[in-house]
Every structure is written in structure tokens, then in C-alpha cells.
Design a protein around this nucleic acid. Structure first.
Lengths: 167, 167
DNA sequence: ATAACTGATCTTATAATGCAAGTGGTTTTG
DNA sequence: CAAAACCACTTGCATTATAAGATCAGTTAT
């Protein structure tokens, strides 16, 4: 996450050099599945409690390496709006696999894993649709008919509601 | 990689807590695709040059968290043989996706990315076959007909030979 | 007996992380 | 219009992880 040195030309190694740290993929996840678009949203709504200096550092690194882009928010002179780029949008299948593996082999919570479950069941067709939608949200692509984002959000809220009722 | 604390029940976060560091997946990759089974092999054939203390640390952590298992080598009282477990064998699709992303978005070398290319083209059918084979190599499952390992190795050696000839 | 091998540890240095507080500015509120 | 709240970061400092190289004691081959 830190290395400037290129240790080897192996694709797995190079992916790890860009994303293999504790926080980079967390930031991308929140941007992608939570549609958090500026600093404060990423900071305060963070499930994992990222520290502000680490967040600032990761946003800078990820922007430098082309995985995020930043533009000024016209409604607020200090706010920046962070967006995914095509390379980070193409992380959807990787994040889907991470979610699927985590769901099977770690102690996940029901609420936070429903999206991973849906994404796994939906398979590559759903991933492609989601990527199309992300291109509309983050780049300036046309808005597709299907909203995977809405599907995931609805399922998440349904689980939250169910558990609030039960608990 | 280090955390005992569970920061959140999100499957992506939990996967990162187990594997989200610079070296864990490198070790698993070498065990999986290079069939390196003991310490010295992992240490000296490492493309990326892992330090011995880090390797020892990761082997211990990965074994503790159930991603590797270790048994004594009957031929040498000090040697241990490390094996993948079912959870780490199920990382095949994740590593395939990492390879595919890295191949597209980082500066990979031809020799080291041919396996990722084949694994991407082969798709889920190939991943499943490879996992079957890994269960034979690392657990005590029956040996399947198809050897994805041999296919990958042959393709790799062909590229090495081609480039040696050309260069 | 000796040399090479084995998995691992020790030392020392550098770098990343985490937390709390602070900065200079902007927008909202009373 | 002044005070409060908000905003994106930055700073300082302590803790922890990583890195490179030397070293270690037991094991095996010669």
C-alpha cells in the first residue's frame, strides 16, 4: 500500500501492491456500495472506524493511482466529491468474491452480509449490471434500467427492519 | 492482518482482516500455484523476496487461523510440510479475479501473467477443476483426471522458453 | 568430523497505524 | 452579524508492523 518499488510482475502481486492493505478496499467498498461521496461521509459512517489521517492518506493514494477521482463540490467550496473510476468499478467481481468467501469462512453479521449474499447469487450478470449502474453514478454514463444498488439497499433495509422488530 | 479485534461483521472487512496485508496471499499463491510446500522453498523461490521473519510470522498466523495446516516431514525431522486447507482452496476464484484485474490494470510481465490469463479464460469450470486438484494435492482427496496445475505450468514454461529464444 | 541445510529467531532500523487535538476556512443558525 | 457548527485535512506522539541481515541450534549428507 505503500510500496513504490515493484517487487514482481505477477498480477496477483501487483494487485496486492495497489490494494493489499487494511483500508484501501474498505474505502472503495463504501464508495461503491454505500455511495459515500465525500470525506465526512466516509469518515463518520464508517462501520470500521477509520481514522481521519488514514482516510486522507488513502484518498490521496487511491486518487494518485487512478482508482478514484476527485472534483470540487459546487454546493460547498471546501467539499470534494470522490468518484470511482473505470479501474475501480472493475473491482466489482473481486469484491463480490471477497464477500462470498467471507460469508462462508468468517463470522459475518446477517445485516452486513445480505448484500454479499445477493451479489453472489446474482452472479456475473448481476455484477455487470451493477458496473453499468456505477458508471452512471460515478462517470457520466447513461442510467441503466436495472438498479442493482436499489436491490441491494432494499434487501439490507429489509433485514435491518426484520431484526429491529425481532430484537 | 494483525488485528485480533473484529471491527465489523461485514464479509469484505472480515476477509481483509484475515488476508488484507502484503504477504498472506503471496504465501498462499506460492503454495497454490507453485506447489511450494516448505519454508525454505517458499523463502528462496519467492519472486518478491519475502524476509524470513515475515514468512515465519505469516505461516504461523495462517496456520492459526485455519488457512494452512502443517505436518512434519517424515524425511527430515526439522522440515514441516505446509498444506492448503478447504478454506484456502476456496480462495481460487478470488485469486483468479485478482489476477484478472491485475492483468488489466497494472504493468504485469508476460511470463508471470500467462497463468492468470488462462485462469480467466477458463472461467468457473476451470476454477472448480483446479480446486478439485488442490484437494488431491493438499488434502487426501482422489486425484481428478484433469490437471489444471499441469496446464498452467506448461503454458508458463512455454512462454519462458519463447522469451529465452527471442531474447 | 565437518559442512551444508533447516526452520526459525534476534537485532536494529524504518515505516505504518491509531488516536486526540488542532488548523484555517465555510456555511448555518439565532 | 456574531457564534456555533461543519468541513477537509494536518500535526504530534505513542504503539505496532515490516524489513534486512546476522545468528542459532538441531539435522542430514559427505
Amino acid at each position: 500500500m505503500v510500496d513504490i518499488v515493484q517487487r514482481s510482475g505477477c498480477p496477483i502481486n501487483l494487485t496486492l501492491e495497489m490494494l493489499g492493505d487494511r483500508w484501501s478496499l474498505i474505502v472503495i467498498r463504501d464508495l461503491m456500495f454505500g455511495n459515500r461521496r465525500h470525506f465526512r461521509e466516509l469518515l463518520t459512517h464508517s462501520e470500521e472506524g477509520i481514522a481521519s489521517n488514514i482516510l486522507a492518506d488513502r484518498l490521496r493514494r487511491l486518487t494518485e493511482s487512478g482508482l478514484l477521482s476527485r472534483r470540487d463540490d459546487p454546493s460547498h467550496k471546501q467539499k470534494g466529491i470522490y468518484s470511482l473510476t473505470e479501474p475501480s468499478i472493475q473491482l466489482v467481481p473481486l469484491l463480490a468474491q471477497m464477500g462470498a468467501w467471507g460469508r462462508r469462512h468468517t463470522r459475518v453479521s446477517e445485516e452486513l452480509s445480505i448484500r454479499a449474499e445477493l451479489l453472489e447469487e446474482g452472479g456475473p450478470a448481476m455484477w455487470t449490471a451493477f458496473m453499468e449502474e456505477l458508471r452512471a453514478l460515478h462517470l457520466d454514463a447513461p442510467v441503466p434500467e436495472r438498479s442493482v444498488f436499489a436491490e441491494l439497499q432494499a434487501a439490507y433495509l429489509a433485514v435491518v427492519a426484520k431484526n429491529a422488530e425481532a430484537g
